[in-house]
Amino acid sequence: MGAAYAALVGWLYQDAGDLGAAAFWRGVTQEIAARARDPHLVGYSLVNLAQVRTDLGDGYGVIDLCSAVLDGDRVVPRVRVMAMQQQAHGASLTGDLSAIDRLIDSAGGLISRVDDDLPWGNACRRTPGYLEVQRATCYGRLGLGREVGALWSQVLDAVPATARRDRGVYLARHATAAAVAREPEQALEIARVAVEIATETRSARMLRELRALEGEMRPWHDAPAGRDLVEVLAPVNEGS
């Protein structure tokens, strides 16, 4: 339970944009795992560290950490699924589309085997469309606008309204995908909803995604959609 608590605190700091504190608490998770001599918990702790490396843009670091988890058959399917999807993020940071699909598809083949009662790492079972969320995020990093837009539409249909933070992040990514696909009006309308959630939650993850959207919308800065976006983003840009 101590490892689960440390991992949760680390994630909260990561969501708040404090990667230094996130890395510290991920390290606490790893220490607890190592002292417990539990290979499944050690694997989980390495995936946690890989999540921080993902936000730092260190694709090769992500791949190395996840490869260490996947080496051999030491961990349960839950941990293998988590490591595979996170390694896909590393592949997206290094521009390897084929590896993304291979890893996400392989993880999909293991989801039905996640039947343990471990008290941590439940996102792969509880998050609607968990693996397609990862695929869409990875595709988004590669600038595959139209493919990503279709995936986000599918994912968002399954996300409950109560999952406000996740929904806001996904909406912001969907808006960016629309901009990449050269659909600025659609990007603007999706952004309106994302900004409502960002204003309420002040999630650093969400604000970072909206800044990415702002960058992708620069070609339309003199068009009505671009001017309207400035107004839409004003509540989250104030004081940032």
Rank of each mutant, 00 (worst) to 15 (best):
Gly2Trp: 14
Ala4Met: 13
Tyr5Ser: 10
Ala7Met: 09
Val9Pro: 01
Leu12Trp: 15
Tyr13Gln: 09
Tyr13Ser: 05
Tyr13Cys: 04
Tyr13Gly: 00
Gly17Cys: 08
Gly17Asp: 08
Asp18Gly: 05
Ala21Arg: 15
Ala22His: 05
Ala23Val: 01
Phe24Pro: 00
Trp25Cys: 01
Arg26Glu: 07
Ala33Gln: 09
Arg35Val: 06
Asp38Pro: 05
Pro39Asn: 09
Leu41Lys: 08
Val47Lys: 02
Asn48Ile: 00
Leu49Val: 03
Val52Ile: 13
Thr54Met: 10
Asp55Val: 02
Asp58Leu: 13
Gly59Lys: 06
Tyr60Cys: 02
Asp64Trp: 13
Ala68Ser: 14
Ala68Val: 01
Val69Glu: 02
Asp73Pro: 01
Val75Trp: 03
Val75Asn: 04
Val76Ala: 10
Arg78Ile: 06
Arg78Pro: 01
Arg80Asp: 01
Val81Ser: 07
Ala83Arg: 07
Gln85Met: 10
Ser92Phe: 11
Gly95Arg: 08
Gly95Val: 07
Asp101Leu: 11
Ser106Arg: 15
Leu110Lys: 03
Ile111Gly: 00
Ser112Gln: 11
Arg113Glu: 11
Asp115Gly: 00
Asp117Trp: 09
Ala123Asp: 14
Cys124Ala: 12
Cys124Lys: 02
Arg126Thr: 12
Thr127Pro: 02
Pro128Met: 07
Leu131Gln: 08
Leu131Cys: 07
Glu132Thr: 14
Arg135Phe: 08
Ala136Tyr: 11
Ala136Cys: 10
Cys138Lys: 09
Tyr139Trp: 15
Arg141Asp: 10
Ala150Trp: 11
Val155Ala: 00
Asp157Ala: 14
Asp166His: 13
Gly168Arg: 14
Tyr170Lys: 03
Ala172Asp: 04
Arg173Asp: 09
His174Gly: 04
Ala177Asn: 06
Glu183Asn: 11
Glu183Gly: 03
Glu189Ile: 03
Ala191Gly: 08
Val195Leu: 08
Ile197Glu: 07
Ile197Ser: 07
Thr199Arg: 15
Thr199Ser: 15
Ala204His: 13
Arg205Leu: 10
Arg205Thr: 04
Leu207Asp: 05
Arg208Val: 06
Arg211Lys: 12
Trp220Gln: 03
Trp220Leu: 04
His221Pro: 00
Asp222Trp: 07
Pro224Ala: 03
Ala225Thr: 04
Gly226Tyr: 04
Arg227Gly: 00
Val230Met: 05
Val232Trp: 05
Ala234Cys: 03
Ala234Met: 04
Val236Asp: 08
Glu238Ser: 12
Gly239Ser: 12
Ser240Thr: 09
